[in-house]
Simulated scan of single mutants.
Amino acid sequence: MNTSLKVLLIDDHEMLLRGLTLLFETIEGIDIVATTTQGGQSLSLARGHAVDVVVTDAAMPGVDGLRVVKMCAKEFPVLVLTTFDDAKLVSTLIAAGASGYLLKDIQPEELARAIRAAVSGGLVLDPRIARFAHGTVEQRSELAILTRAERGVAELVSLGLTNKDIAGQLVLAEGTVKNHVSQLLRKLGAKDRTALALRLARSLQNETA
C-alpha cells in the first residue's frame, strides 16, 4: 500500500521545478504528483491530484504565492519555498494562512520534514526567518493549529451539533468524530464540550471579522 505524501510544486522557473522533482525522487515517502509554473492552476491541480500539500514560490508573475495561499489554504496545507527573507512578506503569507515559510537553500531532509509537519497540521518556519513572523503567529487564529479534518468538525461543534449529527453531515464514523473532538479539547485547552463550542464560535467569528 502506497502511503507516500502527494505534493504539488509551483514555481515560475521550469528548471527549478525539474530540480526539485529529481530531488524528491531520492526521498522516500514523498511524491511530486504535479508541477506548474502558473499559480492560477494551483487549486484545480491540487484538487485533481488529491494532493496532501502544496509547495509554492512566493514571488511569481501573475498569480503569486500570496494568491496561491489564499486560493488553496482552506483545503490544503501550503508551504512557501522561496529565496526572499523579507519580514513583511513572511508576515503577510503566514497571516494569509500559509502552513510554513522556507528558504530555497534548505537541506532536502529538512524540507521533507517540513512537508510532513505541515500535513500533520503544524506551522513550519525556517529558523532564519522565524523572528520575522513571531508577532504574526501570535496574532493568527488559534484554529491555524488544527488539521483540515479537525477544522471541519470544529465548525460543527461551534454550532452545538452532537457527534452523531456531525458524523452524518461529514460522512464520518461517530467514533472518528469523537476522536477529533478529543483532539480539539486537548489542542485548545477547553475543559469540556460547552467551553469548546463557545471558544470555537468566538475564534471563527474573529476570523471573519
Results as ranks from 00 to 15, higher is better:
residue 57 D to L: 01
residue 72 C to G: 06
residue 197 A to M: 05
residue 113 R to I: 00
residue 139 Q to Y: 03
residue 137 V to W: 03
residue 71 M to T: 06
residue 85 D to E: 11
residue 170 L to T: 01
residue 24 F to L: 15
residue 59 A to T: 05
residue 77 P to W: 07
residue 168 G to E: 00
residue 83 T to Q: 09
residue 183 Q to A: 15
residue 111 L to K: 09
residue 17 L to Q: 08
residue 207 E to N: 13
residue 160 G to N: 09
residue 148 R to N: 04
residue 136 T to Q: 05
residue 55 V to T: 13
residue 9 L to R: 06
residue 180 H to Y: 14
residue 96 A to S: 13
residue 69 V to C: 03
residue 157 V to M: 14
residue 5 L to R: 14
residue 160 G to Y: 11
residue 56 T to D: 01
residue 122 G to M: 09
residue 120 S to L: 12
residue 136 T to C: 01
residue 159 L to S: 13
residue 8 L to T: 07
residue 135 G to L: 05
residue 55 V to H: 11
residue 76 F to T: 10
residue 24 F to R: 02
residue 115 I to V: 15
residue 136 T to G: 02
residue 47 R to D: 10
residue 204 L to P: 09
residue 67 R to P: 00
residue 25 E to K: 15
residue 34 A to Y: 02
residue 135 G to M: 06
residue 97 G to I: 05
residue 27 I to D: 05
residue 133 A to K: 07
residue 66 L to F: 03
residue 25 E to I: 00
residue 129 I to H: 02
residue 209 A to K: 11
residue 50 A to G: 07
residue 186 R to T: 14
residue 81 L to Q: 02
residue 50 A to I: 01
residue 130 A to G: 06
residue 164 K to C: 00
residue 62 G to K: 04
residue 43 L to C: 07
residue 177 V to S: 05
residue 200 L to I: 08
residue 58 A to M: 12
residue 195 A to N: 00
residue 119 V to E: 09
residue 6 K to R: 15
residue 188 L to D: 01
residue 69 V to K: 03
residue 95 A to Q: 11
residue 182 S to N: 15
residue 112 A to M: 01
residue 175 G to C: 02
residue 64 D to Y: 03
residue 187 K to T: 07
residue 53 V to N: 10
residue 40 G to N: 13
residue 105 D to M: 04
residue 202 R to P: 00
residue 105 D to A: 03
residue 55 V to N: 09
residue 151 R to Q: 12
residue 88 K to P: 00
residue 137 V to K: 03
residue 191 K to Y: 01
residue 54 V to S: 11
residue 79 L to P: 11
residue 33 V to W: 04
residue 11 D to H: 13
residue 36 T to C: 08
residue 88 K to D: 15
residue 31 D to Y: 02
residue 104 K to L: 03
residue 11 D to V: 09
residue 31 D to K: 08
residue 202 R to L: 04
residue 177 V to Q: 04
residue 28 E to C: 00
